[in-house]
Simulated assay, not measured.
Amino acid sequence: MATILIAGCGDLGCLLGETLAQEGHTIYGLRRHTDDLPESIHPIQSDLSHSLPKLPETVDYVFYMASAGKYKDAAYYQAYVLGVKNTLNALGNKNVKRFFFISSTSVFGQSEGELVNEESPTSGKNFSTRRLLEGEHLVRDCGFASTIVRFGGIYGPGRTHLIDLVTQGKAHCMEDVWSNRIHSIDCVGILKHLMELDMTAPQKVDGLYIGVDNQPTLSCEVYDWLAEQLSVPDVEHSEPTENSRMMRSNKRLSNAKIRASGYNFIYPTYQDGYIELLEA
């Protein structure tokens, strides 16, 4: 069994921690406020943007899962750059087997519906993607074996923003714009899968994976399908302008690499995941 540190242990981190604790692993969750942490996660109360307290003597795996509280450069710097530096400093010379950094597919700047995989170029065209890429760079050079997982749009219990917009009649979509998403359960499943693969065959774990489901889908198709399931009026469609095309993410992300590693999706399409949410 392993000792695991989840730095930035929010909702997704708690779900991961509880899942791994059920397997017998020892889990430490680091966050500003620890009152709401599940009992199976040992609390470490700290702010990632400051020097961290002493960490457990043994840390086998680290999952860095911080998020920026605001869409501001300072918040992204604290979450994805300064927080990484402080975590690495606190780890010191510990024998960490692998450092997982949770990033975002927003670092891919493609806007013409291109098919994108792990080899595709990234773009630091705004402060948020620049800070994410800075954090990725720090992790790659940290001296530990490391893996970066870039997740697409995460949905699931507690992440029903799109359902709420459609239900309230506030949703609108642009024609011919691709979207990519992943259920939170599969986010946890991918991270658990990669850690367990590293425990048995570390040479098979690569440095970068895209985390999305099997089905890139036109945004309007998703909105219209949800409206039909919810029995509400159709969602307003609009034609994207040339400027909005350039500003908006529009790409088809491939999950072939994570599937080739042996991971089988619990919710391989958006219909599989959203049907369960709607029924709940």
Rank of each mutant, 00 (worst) to 15 (best):
Q45V: 05
Y80Q: 10
H172K: 01
H161I: 00
V116A: 09
V177G: 10
G156C: 11
E276N: 09
L15P: 00
I258E: 11
T200P: 00
P56Q: 11
I185Q: 14
S249N: 05
N86G: 10
G69Y: 03
H137A: 13
N117I: 04
G13N: 09
H42G: 00
H172S: 14
Q168G: 03
V235C: 10
F100D: 09
F100K: 02
G273L: 11
A2W: 01
A260N: 12
A256M: 12
E39W: 02
D272A: 09
R131D: 08
A66H: 00
G69H: 03
S244C: 10
A90K: 06
Y223T: 02
P56A: 14
F151R: 06
V84H: 06
E134Q: 07
H50M: 13
C220Y: 12
T105G: 05
Y155P: 00
T160G: 06
E112P: 00
R150T: 01
E279W: 06
Y270T: 03
K97S: 08
E228R: 09
M247A: 15
E39P: 03
C173G: 15
A66W: 02
G152Y: 07
I154W: 11
E221D: 15
R245Q: 12
A201I: 05
L15Y: 00
Q271W: 05
H42N: 09
T269I: 10
Y61I: 10
I154F: 09
D47Y: 05
A145S: 13
E175C: 12
S123G: 01
S254T: 07
G10Q: 09
P216E: 12
I266M: 13
G24E: 09
A66V: 04
R150G: 03
M199S: 10
N264G: 15
A75D: 15
